Simulated scan of single mutants.
Amino acid sequence: MLPDPPPVIQSPLPYELLLDERPRGWIDLVVIHCTELPDLATARGFGERALYDSGTGNSGHYYIDRDGSVHQYVRVERIAHHVRGYNPRAIGIELVNIGRYPDWLAAGSQSMHEAYTDEQIVALVDLLRYLQRELPMLKFIAGHEELDTTEVSASDDESVLVHRKLDPGPLFPWDRVMQAITLERLGPAS
């Protein structure tokens, strides 16, 4: 008998129905992110911002707060905007973590110091196992930083290049997660 799915708080974004639909068979990749924001409420505010002519914005499908609660902002059958070049095939999972906030692109703010909570990692593993059962084509997992390797000028020094994305970052416990699931790591060339 399969274990029950993890409890998920349904919190659809106001524009969810404006996002393009896709068949579940397209989904073969999970991308792990961190919010690089102080809390879930701030992440929700960023997710609700309409940034495109379509009336949609940037968001992951799932958000996992520090207490391990799982919130779904976008159904997996909709294409969320969370990683350049991979969105049609990917599910985005955001872990609440301060990251480099508030100076994401400043040359002196390029380290990440907040560890992920045990509750977040347990919830993430439960969610990944559930998604593997629900989505038969799901095969790969990657960090945002592995798929978006773009460098940009630092916000405080144009002569310095910094990575646009560093999440989930060096404190994400890849070994622990990979030992608990059967997905394969995906790199930018795949």
Rank of each mutant, 00 (worst) to 15 (best):
G108E: 09
V70D: 05
F140R: 11
I9G: 05
R89S: 10
A123K: 06
Q120V: 07
I141F: 05
Y62D: 05
I9S: 10
D65R: 06
R44C: 12
T150Q: 15
A107G: 03
S153V: 13
N97K: 04
R44P: 08
L95M: 11
P188M: 00
H81E: 12
L138P: 04
L171H: 13
V125A: 03
R185E: 09
R44Y: 14
L95C: 05
P170A: 04
N87M: 08
G60T: 12
A123C: 05
D20W: 13
I91C: 03
V162G: 05
I79H: 07
M137N: 15
I98F: 11
W104Q: 11
H144K: 09
R78V: 07
P6Y: 04
I98Q: 12
D65S: 14
T182M: 09
E151R: 14
R66E: 13
D39P: 01
R84Y: 12
D28P: 04
V162P: 05
I79Y: 01
E145W: 06
V8E: 02
Y52P: 02
L166D: 08
R66S: 02
Y15W: 07
Y52A: 02
A189G: 13
D39E: 12
P7V: 09
A50D: 01
L2H: 15
L171C: 03
M178L: 09
V162D: 05
G45K: 14
Q120G: 03
P5H: 09
L40I: 11
G187M: 03
Y62V: 08
R89I: 10
R84H: 13
R176Y: 02
C34Y: 11
P88H: 11
C34K: 12
E145P: 03
V8P: 04
L51T: 01
L18V: 08
H33L: 15
E184I: 13
S190F: 14
D103Y: 12
P88S: 09
R49A: 05
A180M: 09
Q179G: 11
D103M: 12
P5C: 05
R133H: 14
T149G: 11
C34M: 14
L29H: 10
L13N: 08
E184Q: 08
E16G: 06
T35S: 15
H71S: 13
A180I: 05
L171Y: 13
L18F: 06
V83S: 01
H82L: 00
H163I: 03
E16K: 09
I79C: 06
E21Y: 11
M178D: 05
A90K: 09
T150I: 14
A115S: 15
L124P: 06
V8G: 01
E48T: 00
A50K: 01
A154E: 02
S155Q: 03
T150P: 10
P170W: 06
V152T: 06
D118W: 08
I9L: 08
D167P: 01
P12Y: 05
G68C: 07
H33E: 09
R22N: 08
V160I: 12
E114T: 03
I64C: 06
Y63C: 02
E21V: 10
E134G: 12
D28T: 02
D20V: 09
L17H: 15
S159E: 10
